[in-house]
Design a protein around this nucleic acid. Structure first.
Lengths: 161, 161
DNA sequence: CTTTTTCACTTGCCTGGGCAAGTGAAAATA
DNA sequence: TATTTTCACTTGCCCAGGCAAGTGAAAAAG
């Protein structure tokens, strides 16, 4: 029930239903599993880890908050509050962009980089165990290609409104 | 930086990094996009939609809460609070399992089924647009296979502790 | 039969995050 | 130059969800 087979119908067919269920499990349970590991071992969330990692990869470990929000798939208020916490622990520093006072530049501080380097190995191991180990090399390639397309579509949806 | 190429290293190589970034975007931005659509059009979250859908597919539209929590990848407190809201709107009814008073049976009520049927078309259309339309038939098969493996691994992680 | 343990579920407390309104800076308009 | 609009970011209010403690029922132990 709740699904008809006609390909033109508004419903999903059986194969689509299976894919969709698997994707739902992944988008719900995978972040939860990553959060549990990082919270237990490092006291930070998966999202916070991502913010530190993105900053660390930027030139001079510095980015505008709006750019950082975009690459982290974050809203501005959410990132703003994460930066409040990070600044309180001296993991990052904020300052107005000298070129345009509307922007704010965030720079990863030593303590923040240390936190990232310290928590990375266990986190990466968890990612490998949950995502890469179950797949063959070919499956990884296919998965990467498919996810890249979906990610691009979702990003357009998010930004375009 | 933050990534070395050695396959034995604790880091991800470039291809893995790309896959991982795409997966992060999907697990973060896809639920957000689904939530926005459902919240706007139906006033419910993606998770709440999933609860209604799972119940609707069960025999007699009735399930034990613990089973429902499992198929929805939910904790028990989270599901318990969703059921509070649903019961307040007469979308579901809860009663003790006659066979074992520790379990609670949840049954989808008419109003709940109506809500599901009413909100399904736009939601399914959104899923098709964001997930299926960007992919070829072959990519869908490959994606389904890969996600099924990852989902199984994550479920084991979640249940096994 | 009584007591203890093990369940399934719920409740309370606290934090994270969404949205909408507020602030301050730069650009556009007059 | 003065005013308005646009932009990047922050703040306040509210609600969802995680965790740990609490409740009530069934099984196990005595």
């Amino acid at each position: 029930m709740m699904r008809l087979m006609d390909t033109q119908s508004p419903w999903l067919d059986d194969d689509q239903q299976d894919l969709w269920q698997a994707l739902l499990t992944v988008v719900i349970a995978l972040p939860a599993a990553l959060d549990r590991q990082l919270q237990r071992d490092a006291g930070i969330s998966n999202f916070e880890y991502g913010v530190l990692a993105q900053l660390s990869m930027a030139d001079e470990a510095t980015m505008r908050l709006s750019d950082l929000a975009r690459v982290c798939d974050s809203t501005q208020p959410r990132l703003s509050k994460v930066m409040d916490r990070f600044e309180a622990r001296d993991w990052v520093a904020r300052r107005p962009d000298p070129g345009d006072g509307r922007y704010t530049l965030a720079t990863l501080a030593d303590a923040g980089r240390h936190k990232l380097v310290e928590s990375a190995p266990e986190h990466v191991a968890q990612v490998k165990r949950l995502v890469f180990d179950p797949l063959s090399a070919a499956q990884r390639r296919h998965l990467g290609a498919a996810l890249t397309r979906i990610a691009a579509t979702v990003r357009r949806e998010t930004e375009g409104g």
